[in-house]
Design a binder for these strands. Structure first.
Lengths: 119, 119
DNA sequence: TCGGCTGCTTCGCTTTCAGAAGCACTATGC
DNA sequence: GCATAGTGCTTCTGAAAGCGAAGCAGCCGA
């Protein structure tokens, strides 16, 4: 998957600068990370309210616990989420920033839905 | 893939139970669609320049042709992309709108990359 | 006619996901 | 004490998704 000479199958860090600066590479890495199953949904749910493992699983349509576990590791490794002392997961400032960047996308989805319903 | 009817196994259309409240379901459907592998990357590449099947495959890190095929069907079914008479794929106005909504996300990725490089 | 391009499909193999079950721990009630 | 129920998280096996080499038919310039 993507470019990884990193340790063990972690997040797609923008490693080797290709074709200039990180400006070209970072979007690829972000698109790869955010394209993983449940990741966007998970971020969205965390932005609505921090939650623990099982509560989060319930809110995500009862997604698989094994995948939830790896996705939470992904988010923590990517510094988008973090665990507070009680074990609850919440967004970092970086994660909150991402959610703001995600807002236009969710706004678009409304227009998209009404466009598709024209049949 | 049986592309006979709408939501057999195709796009996560917000064909919800309640017609009026697409406001809640649309983001979920969008997050599901956009969370599929290569979809975000594919949209991004198409926004940079329309392309045919093989050119698109090359630009997407030589992704699998079988997956490319199904993803292109997804995009066309979701009215995000369309094929011109010569066979090249390009974004619809709806797709172009999506790319605009994607812009803050790509901007965020730059900040994300520099944050991760602080190690 | 000949390559070399194109869009696209098929088919085995590998990776990822799904979902039930279970483990260790903690807080509560009896 | 002991059970019960909640938590975070792991482990397992079968199913689904992805991968990628190969191949097919059509087009186009040489």
């Amino acid at each position: 998957m993507g470019s990884d000479t990193d340790d063990e199958r972690g997040i797609p860090l923008p490693g080797g600068p290709v074709r200039g600066s990180t400006t070209g590479r970072a979007p690829m890495a972000a698109l790869d990370l955010l394209g993983r199953r449940w990741i966007l949904r998970l971020i969205w749910e965390l932005s609505r309210e921090p939650a623990g493992f099982r509560a989060l699983q319930r809110r995500c349509d009862d997604m698989s616990s094994s995948v939830l576990n790896t996705r939470l590791r992904d988010l923590v490794e990517a510094r988008i989420a973090i665990q507070d002392p009680t074990g609850r997961y919440e967004l970092t400032p970086l994660g909150a920033h991402l959610v703001e960047a995600l807002d236009p996308l969710l706004a678009w989805s409304i227009a998209w839905a009404s466009e598709l319903e024209k049949d």
